[in-house]
Design a protein around this nucleic acid. Structure first.
Length: 278
DNA sequence: AGGGCAACCTGGGGGC
DNA sequence: TGCCCCCAGGTTGCCC
């Protein structure tokens, strides 16, 4: 579920509550909650202090006063909620970290909840600035070192359709199915157009559109359709009302009035305006 | 090397 | 009510 705007909403929410806190307990409740590649069990983080909450694309990690880090990926349905330890346990609770008390009455917890179990936590070493599992992930558009011209050149050389190219996290990270469709609508580019047939100007428009739509989505707290995405307080984001094509099959294009189409390819749905996006 | 596609899961909703 | 099929914000690994 969560794409860059949702993960960023979670990151900034976590930062607000947990920076500087000490982790006093860590428990996993599901065999897939901690990735097989983890260099240590989740309990390795007990006793550490949270120094920073970082993100690249859809990957999130807690920097600790340790030489390892705790990485989180929310997959399709993962949530990280900050809750009092006394709060009732959620049915899809996969893991929790208990933090030294913010309230005199008791401690807080970071709850990792994930219905579909595609999300995970992982204890990892750093490879340069980022955790090991993030090393192959491209810079996201909101990082200072993001080089849009490099991304354009890379996409221009590809023989696949533009949509899978912008979903490829090794080319540019953070864009998922919702914001890919929205970016292509804004750029007036059909999702199946082959990359090398697009001009650099057109590719640039796609990337800058993705950046602007994701920036707006962050301001709205992300996109929530149902119970699968919530911020750390359990609140929904309200960007779904601003979506122009995603999930709007059959509705009128707000630009030209044509009916929005949905097609399936590359194993996912794509929504677009057949008149605006040739 | 690069592309395409199935696999990994659980649950909600619609049709019959 | 129940069953079956389709659908869902992602990533990976395997096969060609």
């Amino acid at each position: 579920m969560p794409e860059l705007p949702e993960v960023e909403t979670v990151r900034s929410g976590l930062e607000k509550y947990i920076l500087g806190k000490k982790i006093t307990n860590a428990e996993s409740f599901h065999p897939r909650a901690v990735k097989p590649g983890s260099i240590a069990p989740l309990s390795a983080v007990i006793g550490s202090k949270i120094k920073a909450v970082k993100r690249r694309g859809k990957f999130l990690w807690l920097e600790l006063d340790r030489d390892f880090t705790l990485v989180a990926h929310l997959g399709m349905s993962g949530q990280l909620l900050v809750q009092p330890a006394l709060a009732p346990l959620q049915s899809h609770l996969r893991a929790k970290l208990t933090l030294a008390g913010r309230f005199k009455s008791g401690s807080d917890q970071i709850r990792f909840i994930d219905q579909r179990t595609f999300g995970w936590l992982c204890v990892e070493e750093f490879v340069g600035e980022v955790p090991a599992s993030v090393a192959h992930i491209a810079i996201d558009p909101f990082e200072e070192s993001f080089d849009i011209n490099k991304v354009i050149t890379r996409i221009k050389s590809k023989k696949c359709a533009i949509k899978p190219a912008i979903l490829n996290q090794e080319i540019v990270s953070g864009i998922g199915n919702i914001y890919a469709d929205e970016a292509l609508w804004r750029a007036k580019i059909h999702p199946e157009v082959v990359c090398e047939d697009l001009s650099e100007i057109e590719i640039k428009k796609v990337i800058t559109s993705a950046m602007s739509v994701m920036k707006s989505a962050i301001k709205s707290g992300g996109t929530s359709f149902d119970e699968q995405y919530k911020n750390v307080n359990g609140e929904s984001g309200y960007f779904s009302r601003s979506l122009k094509v995603y999930g709007r099959e059959g509705e009128k294009c707000s630009r030209c009035g044509s009916a929005i189409h949905r097609i399936a390819f590359a194993n996912r749905s794509s929504h677009f305006c057949p008149r605006c996006q040739r």
